[in-house]
């Protein structure tokens, strides 16, 4: 979304069309250009006793990943008036090996 300046001055964002003037930045998707997002999600770890030693290992070896592209016209995700729209989604279970060095 083009983030407008309030009354065309300073560092405050305007929200109503009566006070919006100018642009601070556009957080939307520009036309025709590739936009990349990358997320690094660490597996939660736990400490356990094994053969008398404390070792750290993943709490789980499978992570269910969901990526959702939402369009939220106004306000926080939720009540009906905001009319959020789920543009696209992706789901995959990412697994890591259980044995190895």
């Amino acid at each position: 979304m083009p983030v407008p300046q309030q009354l065309g001055r300073g560092d405050r964002m305007g929200r109503g069309p009566y006070e919006k003037s100018g642009i601070i930045e556009d957080t939307g998707l520009p036309p025709g250009k590739t936009v990349n997002e990358r997320f690094d999600i660490f597996y939660p770890l736990e400490e356990v006793e094994q053969n008398g030693k404390t070792i750290t290992r993943p709490q789980a070896y499978d992570l269910d990943i969901e990526v959702k592209l939402w369009y939220v016209p106004f306000g926080p995700l939720g009540p009906k008036i905001n009319d959020p729209f789920l543009w696209d989604e992706f789901a995959k279970t990412v697994s890591i090996s259980k044995t190895g060095k």
């Binding site: 939307g28 036309p31 999600i41 592209l69």
Partner: peptide
């Protein structure tokens, strides 16, 4: 250990969305 998620988006409209 980590999961890497890579998202690639291209807006095909004729303006920013």
């Amino acid at each position: 250990p980590k999961a890497v998620v890579k998202v690639e988006m291209i807006n095909r409209a004729g303006h920013s969305i």
